[in-house]
Amino acid sequence: MKVLVATEKPFAAVAVDGMRKVIEEAGLEFELLEKYKSADELKAAAANAEAIIIRSDIINADILEAAPKLKIVVRAGAGYDNVDLETSKAQGVVVQNTPGQNSNAVAELVFGMAVMAARNSYNGTSGTELRGKRLGLQAYGQVGRNVARIAQGFNMSVSAFDPYCPDEVMTNDGVKPLHSVDDLYSGNDIVSVHIPATPETRKSIGYFTITNMPLGGVLINTARKEVIDEDGLAKALRERPDIKYLADVKPDNADALKAEFGDRVFFTPKKMGAQTAEANINAGIAAARQVVAYLKNGENRFQVNK
């Protein structure tokens, strides 16, 4: 059985070596497709694959239909909106992610952005400190929990809104549970977004949400650009010159926002939350192990398209 590792944005070489070792020691065939330039290249490579491991690569209906032997797709990372879940389920293809493997890397990036915002992008003017500030987390999954852990080291007060997480999980971590988006945004100096892009969350953070923040509010988004209403964001920044927006997911209107708002906005040139050597290795090897566990034993603990 062939396992295809298909990454337009390659894994680190040490991660590839580790994945190859896991897969070949299980008696499976390893194939690597890196830096491909078109979907046709991916389709051709996928034609005889029983398993595909990807990063941010798109697995849509065309790719799935071109891979009749495919049994499993593993996204090395937490988000999986780059995979067509409906078509994969209809074709009997299991889709998994690797939750938690990139979470510390993303959480540390959140704090890199928080410090940048507090110090006015290091432009020489007087900034503020994070100690004593209120941090709100929109979702309390693996990334949110790591952000909370780091925030407590800064002596920040931390609260979170996540209707899918029991209150006691948060309180056990020293985090105050909140029960509405309004409370999250109105009661925190910094809000860090960790929600997935779903039909319910797309464009859910907009003008009214953002302008509900207190004076000097900072919004940090290391999740998905689709959860932001970009027109509403621009309007909020225009009417509230005290608010800042920093993101690891470059918005479609990034150039216009940067031109109008300068240092009040910041975007990484590409999605960099998981761009550390440690996260790269952890996620890749976890994906390889999950492929082996499914193909050999039918283990589907991390399946996201049940």
Rank of each mutant, 00 (worst) to 15 (best):
K35T: 00
N104F: 09
K35Y: 04
P177V: 12
K306Y: 00
D242Q: 14
T171L: 01
A139K: 01
V115F: 07
R131K: 11
P241F: 14
R238A: 15
K244T: 13
S192I: 00
A139C: 02
E8D: 01
L70A: 07
A283W: 01
F154I: 04
A114P: 02
S157A: 12
M1S: 09
P163Y: 05
V227I: 12
R55M: 08
L237S: 03
T125W: 05
L33N: 04
A197N: 13
K9I: 13
L233C: 12
K43P: 04
A114Y: 06
V181Q: 14
V181C: 01
G153H: 08
G100C: 09
A47G: 08
A160E: 07
D81P: 03
D57M: 14
P199Y: 13
V147L: 00
V227W: 02
D84Y: 06
L219D: 06
T171S: 12
E65P: 03
Q142N: 15
R145K: 14
Y164G: 13
V143L: 09
D62K: 06
T276Y: 06
E260H: 02
P68A: 08
T211D: 08
V265L: 08
N97K: 04
A288Q: 06
I54D: 02
R289H: 11
D162G: 02
N253S: 14
L28D: 03
A39T: 07
A45I: 04
E278Y: 05
A107C: 12
Q101S: 15
G124D: 05
Q303L: 05
D252N: 10
R145C: 01
V74C: 07
V147F: 00
N253H: 06
D231A: 15
P177G: 13
A114E: 03
L233A: 12
N60R: 07
E8N: 02
A66P: 02
A107H: 08
L295M: 12
V191I: 14
K244V: 10
N305W: 01
K244Q: 14
Y245L: 10
I58A: 09
